[in-house]
Measured scan of single mutants.
Amino acid sequence: GIQEIVAMSPELDTYSITKRVKEVLTDNNLGQRLFGESILGLTQGSVSDLLSRPKPWHKLSLKGREPFVRMQLWLNDPHNVEKLRDMKK
């Protein structure tokens, strides 16, 4: 599951990941809330907090790293936007 992926993950640049996620969401007119609930399993508040103030990787616990790994996996998925759009319906 995701825990193994997080444990094996190389250090991620949390700042550039969140910046990229925000760009993709904005460009495709997708909400942070939808993204947070569907992709990260987080509430709106947690998501906007994460996206606006990402902590550096080395300061995060494994649990804290999980959303960033999920974001990275989502960014790597060529169908990420379509999938999210489908969830919106």
Rank of each mutant, 00 (worst) to 15 (best):
P67S: 15
S16Y: 15
W74L: 00
D49C: 08
V47P: 08
R53I: 09
G41A: 04
N80K: 09
V69T: 07
Q3R: 08
H79W: 10
S9D: 07
I5F: 12
L40R: 01
N76G: 09
L30A: 02
V47N: 00
L50A: 04
R53W: 06
M8E: 13
L42N: 06
L12K: 05
E23S: 11
V6C: 13
L25A: 01
A7S: 14
N80Y: 02
D13R: 00
L25H: 01
P54K: 02
E66I: 11
D27V: 14
L40Y: 02
K22Y: 05
P54T: 03
T18S: 11
Q3H: 08
R33C: 15
L60W: 03
S52Q: 08
Q72H: 09
K22S: 10
L25P: 00
N80P: 03
N29G: 13
K19Y: 05
V81N: 02
M87A: 13
K63A: 14
P56G: 03
Q32T: 15
S61Q: 02
G36H: 05
I5M: 12
N76P: 03
K63R: 14
E23M: 11
K22E: 08
E82M: 06
L25W: 01
Q32K: 10
L50K: 06
V21P: 02
H79F: 13
T14M: 02
A7W: 05
P56L: 04
D13M: 00
P78I: 09
L40V: 05
K22T: 08
E66V: 07
T14L: 00
R20K: 13
V47E: 07
N29H: 02
L30Q: 02
K63S: 11
K63H: 15
T43K: 14
V47K: 04
K55V: 14
V47C: 10
T43N: 14
H79S: 12
K55Y: 07
S48C: 07
V6I: 12
M71L: 01
N28D: 02
E66N: 05
E11C: 09
W57N: 01
I5S: 12
K83D: 08
H79M: 14
L12M: 11
L73I: 14
E66K: 06
G45D: 15
G31P: 14
P67G: 03
L42A: 09
R53A: 07
P54C: 04
T26D: 15
I39V: 14
V47Q: 04
K83I: 12
V69S: 01
H79Q: 14
Q72W: 10
L42M: 10
R70V: 09
G31H: 09
I2F: 13
Q44P: 15
N28E: 06
D13V: 00
V21D: 03
L51W: 03
G41K: 11
F68R: 00
V6R: 06
L84M: 08
N29R: 11
M8L: 11
I17E: 02
K83W: 04
L51P: 00
L51I: 05
D27I: 15
W74C: 00
G31E: 14
E66S: 03
K89Q: 06
L12N: 03
T14D: 01
L30H: 02
